[in-house]
Simulated assay, not measured.
Amino acid sequence: MKRRDLMGAGLALGLAAPATLRAQAAQFTFRLHSFSSPTALDHTMHLDPWAEKVARESNGRIKIDVFPAMQLGGQPRDLVQQLEDGVVDIIWTVPGFTPGRFMGTEGLELPFLNTGLSATESPAAMEFIAKHLADTEYRGIKIIAVHSTDRALIHTSRKPIRTLEDFRGLKLRVAGRFIGEAVTALGATPVGIPLGGVYEATARNQVDGFLINWAITHPFRLYEVAKFHSEPPGVGLFQGMILTLMNGRSYNRLPADLKAVIDANSGPALAANRGAIWDSQTKPAVDATIAAGNEIIAIGPQEKARWQAAVAPAYDAWIAEMNRRGRNGRAMFDDILAITARHGRA
């Protein structure tokens, strides 16, 4: 081979070598599966940056392939089973998608128990779960973060809700069993509908409204089908829980230094950060709702007290379910109140 050819071959090998090293750098590749759209803030401001940060801080030794919109198959209700079966390594889901699986966590979604800012109440959720549920609902799971949505409220299409009596006869979409129990206690009928079907169901008058957080109304343009929005001002009724979970076996495959990378990108601080992201989306959603000409109805302290008294049967149902599962439901309920108050419940 001529000197020029050797030099060219050497240069080509030299240029190729870093790419080859990069391709070989990932020692562990994990699959993250989500039901959310790739353009939603769940991905653009949470899951995608998180995966990139883990890769960067592990010097490329951990690679996380992100699959939004159920790209690996199945329905959102299948995500937890996919995680536990090892089909995927990490999931992003909500408790209500898997009925019966996260009953304890659903207690954090009961009205008036976990209200205020997600940035402060998300760490409260993490504290409660670590204390009461890690050995049961989350056994075999590495909790990356459990954070709450921004404040959730009642949105209705034709009939405004101003008083407790206005609930009677309404059909309202809910996302979980115990918030459904609360709707029943208020006098309405709960209806389970996937998030993607809420707009159409409301437009067709299959439901009269829905309980959902402010931030999600904006990208789904739900202010087009709901014209009335009822909440205690700046507080809302509840916050939904959002779960980012890792298969415990996948986590345990990692050596100690890489576990430390995952640990540094998990926990209450991450939950608070993601909560702040959701909080930042409340005002744009409210502004869009006002721009659409809709009415935001402020529920005053006296009326709020009536609603809170009315939903007591939902609290009792959750306490009874915890007792049935061998837990001390009353003590857990009281601890939700204590922990969320300490973290700034509004």
Score class of each variant (00 low, 15 high):
G8S: 12
G10K: 07
G10C: 12
L11I: 14
A25T: 06
Q27D: 13
F30Y: 13
F30N: 07
L32Y: 12
F35I: 03
S36F: 15
D42R: 03
L47R: 07
W50L: 07
E52D: 03
S58E: 05
K63A: 14
P68V: 07
A69S: 11
G73R: 14
D78G: 06
V80P: 00
E84M: 09
E84S: 02
V87L: 11
D89K: 08
I91Y: 01
G100P: 02
E106F: 08
L108I: 11
E109V: 12
F112W: 13
T120M: 06
I129W: 13
K131N: 14
I141P: 01
H147S: 04
D150I: 10
D150V: 09
R151W: 15
H155A: 13
S157I: 01
P160F: 13
R162I: 05
F167T: 05
L172A: 05
L172D: 03
R173E: 03
R173P: 02
A175E: 09
G176F: 03
G180S: 03
E181C: 12
P190T: 04
P190C: 07
G196P: 00
G197T: 09
V198F: 12
A201V: 11
N213Q: 10
T217P: 03
R221W: 11
V225C: 09
K227V: 03
G234H: 06
G236T: 04
L254W: 08
A272H: 03
N273G: 10
V286P: 00
D287L: 09
G300A: 14
P313F: 04
Y315C: 02
A317Q: 02
E321Y: 12
E321V: 09
M322S: 01
F333Y: 10
F333N: 00
F333S: 00
T340S: 12
A346T: 11
